[in-house]
C-alpha cells in the first residue's frame, strides 16, 4: 500500500490559487522529489500534507488512513517528520540538546520533571550528530550555527524520531555541493534501510536527478509531469517552464 496518498488537494489564498488539485503518492522506501518554479505551490503542498494548513478540498491519507486536516502533532504520532525551508531549531538550546529534545519528545516525555534534559539520550544524540557531520558543534548554542549547519541539525532532530514518512523542504539549500550529496546519501541510506518514504523539494538539479526515484513537477499549483528522472528530464513542458538550459547532461 502507498505510504502517503495525496488525492486532489487544493488550497487558495484569497485570489491566489496556490495548489490546485494535486494528486500523487509516495511508497515506503521510495524517494520522491517535488520540483517546480518558484511559487509553484511546493511549500504549500508540504504544509497541507503536514497539517500546518488545511486544504480547501482533497484528501491526504497515510497508510490508507485519512489524515486530512490533522494537526502537525497528530501527524508526528503517525510517523511524519518534517524539515522546514527556513530551518527551525531551538536557538536557546545547545546543538546536542536540540537532538536530545527531539528524542525525548519522540518518547512522549516532553513534560517529564527529572532528570535534566542534558542527561538524557546523550549518546544517541551524539550518534545522530555524527551522522549529519555536526559532532564538533555539540556544545555550541544552536543560535550560533551557520545557515547550512542549522539545516543539518534539523535533519538530525527529525531522524532521531524514527519517522516513516520524511517531508523535507529544500533540505540542502545553503550547503556546498559535495555536502549536498553526502546529506542526500545519508537520507537515502535511512530510506532504504528503514523503508521510510521521502518527499522532498529542491532547486538543485544535481541533487534531484541524483537522488530521486520519482519526480513530480508542479507548475501553477498543478502537476504537469510525473515519472522517472529520465522521463521528466526529457519532458518538453518541464524544460519549458522549469529546467531551461540548466538541465544537466544525462548522466
Amino acid at each position: 500500500m502507498t505510504l502517503l496518498a495525496v488525492d486532489g488537494i487544493a488550497r487558495s489564498f484569497g485570489a491566489t490559487v496556490a495548489v490546485d488539485g494535486v494528486s500523487f503518492g509516495v511508497a515506503a522506501g521510495e524517494r520522491v522529489a517535488m520540483i517546480g518554479p518558484n511559487g509553484a505551490g511546493k511549500t504549500t503542498c508540504f504544509n497541507l500534507i503536514n497539517g500546518q494548513i488545511a486544504p480547501d478540498r482533497g484528501r491526504v491519507a497515510i497508510d490508507g488512513r485519512d489524515t486530512t486536516g490533522r494537526s502537525p502533532r497528530a501527524l508526528q504520532r503517525l510517523g511524519v517528520g518534517r524539515t522546514f525551508q527556513i530551518s527551525q531549531v531551538f536557538a536557546s538550546l545547545t546543538v546536542r540538546e536540540n537532538v536530545q529534545a527531539a528524542l525525548v519528545a519522540g518518547q512522549g516525555r516532553a513534560l517529564s520533571p527529572w532528570p535534566p534534559l542534558r542527561r538524557r539520550e546523550a549518546a544517541a544524540a551524539d550518534r545522530l550528530l555524527d551522522q549529519v557531520g555536526l559532532a564538533g558543534e555539540a556544545e555550541r548554542g544552536a543560535a550560533a550555527l551557520a545557515y547550512g549547519d542549522a539545516k543539518r541539525l534539523e535533519l538530525a532532530m527529525v531522524l532521531g524520531q524514527g519517522p516513516r514518512l520524511l517531508l523535507m523542504d529544500e533540505p540542502t539549500a545553503g550547503m556546498g555541493i559535495d555536502e549536498r550529496h553526502a546529506l542526500m546519501e545519508l537520507v537515502s541510506g535511512v530510506v532504504r534501510g528503514r523503508g521510510v518514504g521521502l518527499l522532498f523539494t529542491e532547486h538543485d538539479m544535481d541533487v534531484v536527478f541524483g537522488h530521486a526515484d520519482r519526480i513530480v513537477v508542479l507548475h501553477r499549483g498543478r502537476v504537469i509531469a510525473a515519472g522517472t528522472p529520465a522521463a521528466v528530464r526529457a519532458d518538453p513542458a518541464v524544460r519549458e517552464v522549469y529546467l531551461g538550459a540548466e538541465a544537466p547532461p544525462c548522466a
Binding site: V89, F90, Q161
Partner: peptide
C-alpha cells in the same frame, strides 16, 4: 527545556510532537 524550545520555535516543537 521544552518551554524554552516552544518559545524559540513553536512550529518545530509542534512538528516534533
Amino acid at each position: 527545556q521544552f518551554l524554552r524550545a516552544g518559545r524559540d520555535a513553536p512550529r518545530r516543537a509542534e512538528a516534533l510532537g
